[in-house]
């Protein structure tokens, strides 16, 4: 069997977390990973380290400590911002060979997956992708057990790699709760030397757009209005914005001219695969349901308790969407203020 660049006997008892950031703040998934690693490390007597790559990233070091890092390895260089897979892989690779952690974790985000996929090959080690849970088996000398799902979520598997280090895993955002940050907690900052040349970086970021240009097929949340919302797409738009999603419609509101035909969901419209579809005031005509059947979770609100849409929903609310939606907007806003 081919060996990784370093083995279990050379590995340090440490969790390394790749810290993703956007607009000078650590991404939530990175904080989730710090929180989880802290808990696992405390039980095992291990260390937790953050790997922070970017430009002018120092202000985020404090947060990494507050959420549980004992040390933060920092590489600060203009060519590390914005993320390109070549630059981040190169620096992460050097840092890992220096620190030799037993475990290396990334969020299963677009950038986290890109980085982890490249790194694992460069390190000749294994990669457990898109974990929904992590455990540490101390009896076997610190073997990481990653829980993953396959076949559209139908099968759960436990994955280990006993003989290769680092044990790499990407973790699905949202599966671990955030710990309470300990403000003022500190640790060690370990600076990394960066030897990057622009010509070595093949990726050119031509344009970068945040918070715009999402099409319905790619929207993480879809708020769909049917006949029963009587054209109040302004309300749905407000709700969709709060949830970071898009507004769709069944055929009748499109027919009425209440909303553009591009937003029609279903057999003769767009077929979507959001994490959540919130269907308001739609009866659940078969041709429409085809358009949301791949949604992770379906929530339906309809006044008619017999409406077929409830057959296709995970959560069904028998009620007037025009009363429930404003209340939901209120509740989400209140939550935002609290947070």
């Amino acid at each position: 069997m081919a060996a990784s660049l370093y083995g279990p006997e050379e590995a340090q008892s440490a969790f390394w977390i790749y810290l993703e950031h956007e607009q000078r703040a650590l991404e939530r998934v990175s904080l989730e990973l710090l929180s989880k690693a802290r808990a696992l490390a405390d039980a095992a007597g291990w260390r937790v380290a953050g790997l922070l790559l970017g430009h002018r990233v120092e202000p985020m070091v404090e947060d990494a400590f507050a959420w549980g890092a004992d040390e933060v390895w920092v590489a600060d260089h203009p060519l590390l911002e914005p993320f390109t897979v070549e630059a981040h892989t190169a620096i992460a690779f050097q840092a890992i060979l220096r620190g030799r952690p037993s475990v290396f974790l990334c969020g299963a985000t677009p950038n986290g997956r890109d980085l982890a996929g490249r790194l694992a090959v460069r390190l000749r080690t294994g990669l457990t992708a898109d974990c929904t849970d992590l455990r540490l088996d101390l009896e076997k000398g610190g073997v990481l057990i990653g829980e993953v799902t396959g076949f559209g979520g139908g099968i759960v598997a436990l994955i280990t790699m006993p003989n290769h280090r680092p044990q790499m895993a990407t973790v699905r955002p949202g599966v671990f709760p955030l710990a309470t940050p300990q403000r003022g907690r500190t640790g060690v900052v370990i600076p990394l030397e960066v030897d990057l040349h622009p010509e070595a970086l093949r990726t050119r970021v031509v344009e970068r757009v945040v918070g715009r240009g999402v099409d319905l097929t790619q929207a993480p949340v879809l708020v769909v209005g049917g006949r029963g919302i009587h054209g109040r797409f302004d309300l749905l738009q407000e709700l969709a914005s709060l949830l970071g999603g898009e507004v769709g419609a069944t055929r009748p509101p499109v027919d009425e001219g209440w909303i553009d035909r591009e937003r029609q969901v279903g057999q003769t419209g767009v077929v979507c695969r959001p994490k959540v579809a919130l269907v308001c005031g739609a009866s659940g005509a078969f041709q429409f349901v085809v358009g949301i059947q791949n949604a992770g979770t379906v929530i339906a609100i309809n006044t008619d308790p017999e409406a077929p849409i409830f057959e296709f929903a995970d959560y069904g609310v028998v009620g007037d969407a025009l009363q429930v939606i404003p209340a939901l907007i209120e509740a989400l806003r209140a939550e935002r203020v609290m947070a």
């Binding site: 027919d255 057999q267 003769t268």
Partner: peptide, 8 residues
């Protein structure tokens, strides 16, 4: 035409 849209 079940699989094609017919305008209102």
């Amino acid at each position: 035409r079940m699989w094609l849209e017919t305008r209102v």
